[in-house]
C-alpha cells in the first residue's frame, strides 16, 4: 500500500466583470435584461459582451430584451457532485424575445422527479418566463429560474 496524501484547494479570488458587463448587472437590479447589438451582423447578443467575436467589432449599442422566451434545450441533473447544486436541478438554454443568442439558465416550476415527464413539460420550444429574486442585487443569480408560461 502506497502513502496517500490528502489535499484541498481553497484559494480566494475577486473577479472583475469589466466595465461593459457591469451595465448588464446594474439593469438586473431593476429586473431588466440587457443585450448588445452587433453593428455589423445585427445579432442581439445575450449575455452581452464588449465585442462580437464573429465580426470582431465593438458592440456598444445596448438593447433591452424580454425576460420571456423559449426553451432551446434542457437537461435535468440527478447526480450529486462536490460544490455543485443539490440534485435534481434543470439547466437549459433560453432564447429570450428580442435576442439572437440563447442564455444558459435554470429551469423550474416543474416536478423533476421523473425526467421523462419533466422533459415533456420543458420541451424544446416551450415558452418560459423569468422568476426573479424579490430584491435583486445585480448578480446573475437574481434570475432564480425560468418557468413555463401557462397558455
Amino acid at each position: 500500500m502506497v502513502l496517500r496524501i490528502e489535499a484541498k484547494w481553497e484559494i480566494p479570488y475577486v473577479h472583475s466583470a469589466g466595465e461593459h458587463a457591469t451595465k448588464f448587472f446594474e439593469a438586473l437590479k431593476e429586473k431588466k435584461i440587457l443585450g448588445v447589438k452587433c453593428p455589423k451582423c445585427q445579432r442581439v447578443l445575450v449575455p452581452p459582451r464588449a465585442f462580437c467575436e464573429r465580426c470582431y467589432v465593438d458592440t456598444d449599442e445596448w438593447v433591452e430584451v424580454k425576460d420571456e422566451g423559449v426553451i432551446e434545450t434542457v437537461t435535468i441533473n440527478y447526480a450529486r457532485f462536490t460544490g455543485l447544486p443539490d440534485p435534481p436541478y434543470a439547466v437549459g438554454i433560453i432564447k429570450l424575445d428580442g435576442a439572437d443568442t440563447g442564455m444558459l439558465a435554470y429551469l423550474g416550476g416543474v416536478d423533476l422527479t421523473d425526467w421523462k415527464k419533466a422533459h415533456e413539460k420543458l420541451k424544446v420550444g416551450t415558452r418560459v418566463k423569468a422568476v426573479w429574486k424579490d430584491r435583486p442585487e445585480g448578480r446573475i443569480t437574481d434570475i432564480l429560474y425560468f418557468k413555463p408560461v401557462e397558455e
Binding site: 479570488y13 473577479h15 466583470a17 469589466g18 458587463a21 449575455p47 432551446e72 434545450t73 434542457v74 437537461t75 441533473n77 447526480a79 457532485f81 455543485l84 447544486p85 436541478y89 439547466v91 437549459g92 438554454i93 444558459l104 439558465a105 435554470y106 422533459h119 420541451k123 424544446v124 446573475i140 443569480t141
Partner: peptide, 24 residues
C-alpha cells in the same frame, strides 16, 4: 465566473443538452 459558472454546468450537462435537441 461572471455569467455562467453559477449554473453548475460541466461536461456532462453540455452533452446532455445536445442529446435533448437531437432526440427531439
Amino acid at each position: 465566473p461572471i455569467y455562467e459558472r453559477h449554473s453548475g454546468v460541466g461536461a456532462i450537462s453540455v452533452a446532455a443538452i445536445q442529446a435533448t435537441v437531437h432526440m427531439q
